[in-house]
Nucleic acid binder design. Sequence first.
DNA 1: GGTTAGGGTTTG
Length: 810
Amino acid sequence: MPFHVLLEGMGTGPQIPAHLTRISISLITTSTDLTNKVVKGKVVQKGPLVSLAPDNFILKTVIQEEDSELNASSQNLSINVVLFGELAKNFSQGVNQEDMVVAAGFTMSKSPTVRKDNLHPFNLLLSGDDACIYVFRPKPPPDDRSLLANRRSSTLSAEVSRKTKVPKYTYVRLGDLTAGSVVNVYGVVVFFKQPFKSRGTDSCSILKITDQSNQNITCSIFCEKLEDHPKIFQIGDIVRMHRVKAQFFKDSISLVNTFGFSVVTFDGTVGGAMEPRTSSRSFHFNQEDRQTVEELRSWASSQALFPTVSAAIHLSAVQPKSYFDLNCQLLAKAPIDSTCILLRVWDGTRCPHTLLKVNVEPNVTEGPSSFSKEKENIIANVFVYDNHLDCARKLKLGSFLRIYNLRANPGHSNVPGLTSSHSVDHLAFHLHGGTSYGRGIQVLPEDSLDVQELKRVLEAFPHDDMNEPFDLNDSALLEVWSTPPELLERGDSPDMPLMTLSELKQCELSRVHHVRAQLRSYEPRRLHQALKLYCSKCTSMQEIPDEELVAGIFSEASSDYEPCNAPPWALLSAFLTDSPVSPDRALTLLLPRQLMSDVKTKGLIFLMGTTLEETYRLAASYQNIVPVRSSGREITLLDLSAPFLFRGRKRHYGCKQCSETVLRDPSAEGVKVIDEKVVAEVLGVQLLQCVLLMKLELQDATDTLEVFLWTHAESFFGVSAEDAAANQEAQNSIRQTMESLCPPGGSMDQHPWLDLFLTAYQTKDDVGQNQTCYQICQTTLIKPPPQNRTPTPPEPPPPPSPGSEITSAG
DNA sequence: GGTTAGGGTTTG
């Protein structure tokens, strides 16, 4: 196991092996011997778990060394740690910000982000069997074993807890309940019902719990608000309830909540994360509680209390006539009649039985009224009846659900809304009325394991029109990129009529259309991934080369030095560096004679023998730097994966395919101003243009639509791609724009409505099939939308108003 | 300061 939790001050449990010795993070250099070394630090930043492929993850975190006696200096105490695979997953689940961790079995790499984040110049990499993380859990303070825990962080300082009056809770075993007493209990859930409306004022949850005393106790929980009910997702979950009253009913003891009731739920998996599920703003949770949960987990796992196979299955395993639970994503919904609503869901797997097709009027469907043929084949139609309608109506499109006790019904049944006859083995799914067998629907939290698994499977499905914004499909973008730009003509007039997204999809191509829509999601979420290099000659698009790759080209070129001759038009000036890394390296300046007079402000130098880092630093002092290398006594440009020109903070790249480089005098032929175009032309470089490329998902009342933002991206944002590549302010401006159009974590109500012009055009996919693509054009952000505005969606869309926040530049 | 429900498949 590469992941251990250590309890501070506890003599039992996993320990850090004695042969490992700790070194200070500040002492890590390339020459450090890492054998049997560990580092220790506090988690000061914890990145998200990123899925690279099914069962392959990556996670980045920053740890900071705190104890000063070990630090050789106060420099470089914070370091990026990159975790891979299972370890990344365990870390994501088991470690919180502020936790103290020890890392062992790591390797090092140069940090490509050192200039940006100012952290340690190296990264620690943790992958493979040798990699290991130990997490320290603080021991409770001796004078008060109770800690006040906040929802997100598991501990608070002892000082705070001393100031706060903390009640001490005692818990009664389920075998020791006496009628009439108000108690606190722990239990493992062996049965539960979703909250349903009672005849009184509240909703009612029914659960049955058990513990080591082997009593099964039925609990009735009445709460007005749904969020105050126990958040139970599956049998085996562990609940802790405060202030429940024991009473006799039908010869046995049962529990009912009483005044001051609160409940916290934990996952029941042995070794699972201790993430509490509760609506309480603060609750008490100490070491004893942790231990109680662990004990219940391990006791339950030894008891065969419930079926070993979960009731939740994938669509691919559904048997006709069976009842099952389904984890799925909601794609669309439509009311059928006063007792029934249709939910269209998928889990990314294909049911072996043909699924029933349902025809519903497009204008009553919420979400897309149809999907690609391939996607339609794996979408399940779920009919939801009676008491579940309330819940179904509130569900948001795109949310992840668990539907309990779904029935797979073969055949036709006289379902309203069906327009044609269906053969008997077509499966439809019914969530029948009533609450028997826990029937109901629950929205799964985004961070749950079930949702993580669903997302992995759904990401693997070929990208269609409604995937979540995780699956940046670069090859799809590339295809579009290769579309000749002349297909994208300008529109005729800015006051053309508005149309809905679903009308747009029926329209002829190569015209400009005017729509009003909200931005539902966009890709890529990281701005640097939206920056690409475009060759106007061969119309290819490429990624901006990786920092480490470029550094490698520089270091290879400088280590490969051989004496060479200066061309007649230049002066060669070589000297030895005093760099501590490689003190005897020759650093060579090649100065074009005609540009020497004012080389710093308007001139150009050729530079040989520098590292990438040194080139950056020199670029601050020289207007134009062209890195060169020696090659068989000749001087040549570097490989074109590296920038061929540094101009201040900007770097310029050339197209490998279209360039025929040659070293020539840039000052020839009376050139007055030296810029990247002049230099590229003289050196035979086909200049690559820095561009922005994003994929946006628009939504209106009728449909959703994916559109690209590229040739008009710069005018849309009012920021040049080149600036976005070179300076932080430009990047911030784009980020703020996107966040105002698509507020992170906000509901769709908070997304402003946008007036946009779109062009439609065709391109070919992998197999030569025509596909229609859309692109935003002629649209400019005219003022930054204020935060937290909640415009009402127009339905049908009204004509464009001068007050709209985004409008056409016309 | 406390009614509601008190598990055990719709009938589409």
